[in-house]
Write a protein that binds this DNA or RNA. Structure first.
Length: 443
RNA sequence: GACCUCUUCGUCCAGCGGUUAGGACACGGCACUUUCACUGCUGUAACACGGGUUCGAUUCCCGUAGAGGUCGCCA
């Protein structure tokens, strides 16, 4: 087909809402294909519907793509030889192409609108993902190219721009599959080479419904806001609808580029699995280099737990390092900090019930408190020794003391490694907190 | 309604005529951790249904059902 010409692909969003993960995935696959083949990625803004366009939506597209690391070699803010890259600025070009169609007799006037006279012969779409599809066009109404007010319709400008911008491969959502015969008719009427098409299946929610703005994980911005790492989101998006032959799941972007092909694109729609995306994110968080992690975690700590600045002498760095292996998402540092920092955090109810139900719990905890009070040096080893001594005296396993201790200390049933947390908090605070919550629990 | 696409564990993907149908997430168990988690091991769990073709179908063909998409002077 066009195997000898350089690959040129495009992502052509409309700035009418937010950047949907589905759109981002489409952009990503185009970008991957371009990278894989040393081609060019074009960003084209399809803003022909003046009434629906917003500057905020445009910004969301730029921000979202950049955050994910998807760049473009031609388009807004970077320029290129085939601009302008906003359709709203390309009317002269469209006028010229329309005139060509008028001259060749493909267009007629219908109450001021310009309509394309369909050849009404079957059109075959040779799709790289969906296969060869032949559509009967004989009953289809003629498409409108230009409204009476002079503004142009999507199908026409989309095709004109793909011709003008020398697009060789069109990779887009399956919602465009049935538009493709119309587009092919236009390419042919204009005497242009039809690009290679690949239509990728859409994303659905877990329940099979269409993903819309309110749904969890639907907008790219929501990942930014929730502290996801872009590399993790990109990795997850790559795996939805595509997979490498060897079944690996955690792949760097460069590994994906090296392997990406559309023979391995999936044909069926996939349901978005937020839990798996989260899991992948936790893998990336765990691998974050220390300095990078601390910088990000500190920012999230300030954002999610502003009270933090109130206490002097609190070793924030040590605390953040302690919680790193527990995090699925960076903003969770807020909850962990609350457990460490807040003396009056209400205890989890389930934990309270469990501890209150344990035989001798109050006695054992008072014993532990006494031992901790006598701990000479406040080190992990010494604290451990105190716990062991308590266990021996109370005739229980040391491990049995840990859950109640955790609850009294942090108010939670799970969290960071306990001994380092005790050390971090300091003896007097630990004792005060244990005493206080012990009284709350058994009064 | 018409047309198009799709249909393997709950979910995401492997599989492309002969497999004990594989991996990952989630879930359960065990081990490790004197706790929480991580990790390792392990368990439950799937070829939508009905016909063909074939010595043999999850895999090929035809139906049915279900899901999604498209039928604009939206993009």
């Amino acid at each position: 087909m066009t195997s000898d010409s350089p690959v040129r692909v495009r992502f052509a969003p409309s700035p009418t809402g937010y950047l949907h993960v589905g759109g981002a995935r489409t952009a990503l696959f185009n970008w991957l294909f371009a990278k894989r083949h040393g081609g060019t990625m074009v960003l084209r803004i399809e803003d022909t519907d003046a009434a629906r366009n917003t500057p905020a939506a445009l910004a969301a597209i730029f921000d979202g793509l950049r955050w994910l690391g998807i760049d473009w070699q031609e388009g807004p803010e970077v320029g290129g030889d085939y601009g302008p890259y906003f359709q709203s600025q390309r009317n002269a070009i469209y006028d010229r192409y329309l005139q060509r169609l008028i001259d060749s007799g493909h267009v007629y006037d219908d109450q001021g609108a310009m309509r394309f006279r369909s050849p009404r012969v079957p059109v075959t779409v040779d799709d790289q993902v969906c296969g060869s599809i032949t559509i009967d066009r004989s009953q289809e109404p003629d498409m409108t190219l230009r409204r009476p007010d002079g503004s142009y319709i999507f199908h026409f400008v989309n095709v004109v721009d793909d011709i003008e911008m020398r697009i060789t491969h069109v990779l887009r959502g399956e919602d465009h599959l049935m538009n493709t015969p119309k587009h092919i008719e236009l390419f042919q009427a204009l005497g242009a080479t039809v690009p290679v098409y690949a239509h990728i299946p859409l994303f659905l929610n877990q329940d099979g419904s269409k993903m819309s703005k309110r749904d969890q994980g639907a907008s790219v911005a929501s990942y930014q806001e929730n502290g996801f790492l872009p590399a993790a989101v990109v990795n997850y998006l790559c795996l939805l609808g595509w997979s490498p032959k060897d079944g690996r799941e955690k792949l760097s972007i460069n590994e994906v580029i090296a392997l990406f092909d559309w023979e391995h694109l999936n044909r069926s729609p996939s349901k978005f699995d937020y839990a798996k995306c989260l899991w992948l994110n936790s893998q990336y968080v765990a691998e974050l280099p220390e300095a990078e992690y601390l910088e990000m975690a500190q920012a999230w700590a300030r954002e999610k737990y502003p009270l933090l600045t109130d206490r002097a002498g609190f070793d924030l760095t040590a605390a953040l390092q302690l919680m790193k292996p527990k995090l699925k998402q960076l903003p969770e540092v807020g909850e962990h900090l609350a457990m460490l920092f807040d003396d009056d955090l209400p205890m989890e109810e389930a934990g309270q019930i469990k501890v209150q139900g344990q035989a001798e719990a109050a006695r054992n905890l008072r014993l532990l408190l006494a031992h901790l009070n006598e701990t000479p040096a406040w080190t992990g080893e010494a604290i451990q020794a105190s716990i062991n001594a308590t266990a021996t005296e109370a005739k229980v396993k040391p491990g049995a003391l840990m859950f109640p201790l955790r609850l009294l200390l942090t108010g939670a049933t799970h969290g960071v490694d306990l001994l380092p947390a005790l050390v971090l908090l300091g003896k007097s605070r630990v004792l005060a907190r244990l005493t206080h919550r012990l009284n709350q629990l058994f009064s």
